[in-house]
Simulated assay, not measured.
Amino acid sequence: MQRAAQRDDRAQQVQRAKRLRRALACAAAVPAVLITAACSSDSDDSKAKSGGESTQQSAGGSTQPSASASPTVQAAAYRKLPEACGVLSKKTLTDLVPKGSKSGKKGSSDDPSARASCSWNSLDNNGVKGSQFRWLNVSLLRFESDATRGSGDEQAHTYYAQQVKDAQSVDGAKGVKVVPLSGTGAEASAVRYDLKKKEGLFKQQTVVARVENVVVTLDYNGAGLAGEKTPDADDLSKAAQKALKEAVASVSSANGAGDAGSSSSSPSKSASDPAAKSPSSSPSKSASSSASPSKSAAGKS
């Protein structure tokens, strides 16, 4: 019995020792578990917080650039051009080219709605007294608004300024004068000079006007040949300016509008400074090579 009791005591001691070891082992394991759980919890919280912020940023769109609106320009005022050989009345043609009012020659164009021209010539033969020569050319150029190049008005202003500048720089021109004109489109200028040629002394008049997105250039020259007296430059200038107003008005009429000869539209730059550059980009390559330049007009005889 005593041994049994002793065995029981030892067994109990062994059991208590085992339980104590297990308790200690469990006690030692608890902090590790807690630490792991705590780390896991912090990590999850961090991920959740980070994910929440990312979601909010994405949802709020603060990190996403908004789509920029497509650039727009003002629509061009005029959509077509009048028939170039019909922009001047029969009376006007008779005054400017007395012997050639019916000799209108239409210029070639790959797009009549964008560029057009017509020319006339007159030779009034006075026998032994000589002859009076006149040459007239009207060209029209229309610009379409474009997001890259700018509005039609801006492009037309740039081309208008270039036409005036070109008219002043003709080789051999003498006594060049530039006069701003009022009451003709949005802006207009007259350039006049003398040009000595083997046939005689030519009095050249180049008048240019812009009406909204269309530029009208009128070249007119006269000379007394074979002993005939030289025509008066002032008379030629007045006739050219009158014809220019008529041509400008025809642009408006062709588009169903009223008389544009006295348009009050504000020019892009002052008409008194026709060579000023517009802030817009230069006109398209095809447009700038169309209308007859002043140089070619001066070279006619």
Rank of each mutant, 00 (worst) to 15 (best):
Q241F: 11
K196Y: 12
K269N: 15
F202P: 00
G185I: 12
D194P: 05
S263V: 04
S237L: 03
S250D: 06
L181E: 04
D259R: 14
E246N: 10
Y193C: 06
A233M: 10
S284Y: 11
V170P: 04
S253P: 00
S265R: 15
N255W: 14
A223K: 02
S237R: 13
G175V: 05
A257M: 15
D259W: 07
L201M: 06
S262V: 04
S272K: 15
K269A: 14
S268E: 08
V178D: 07
A275K: 11
A226N: 12
S263K: 01
N221E: 02
V207F: 15
A257Q: 11
G172H: 13
A167M: 05
A276W: 12
V216F: 07
L218H: 09
T184W: 01
P279H: 15
D171V: 10
A190V: 00
A243I: 01
G222K: 03
Q204S: 14
T184K: 00
G222F: 02
Q168A: 03
S169Y: 04
A240R: 02
S189C: 13
G183F: 09
S237Y: 08
S189V: 05
S169I: 14
E228W: 12
V176G: 10
K285S: 11
V215N: 03
K285H: 04
L181M: 12
T206K: 07
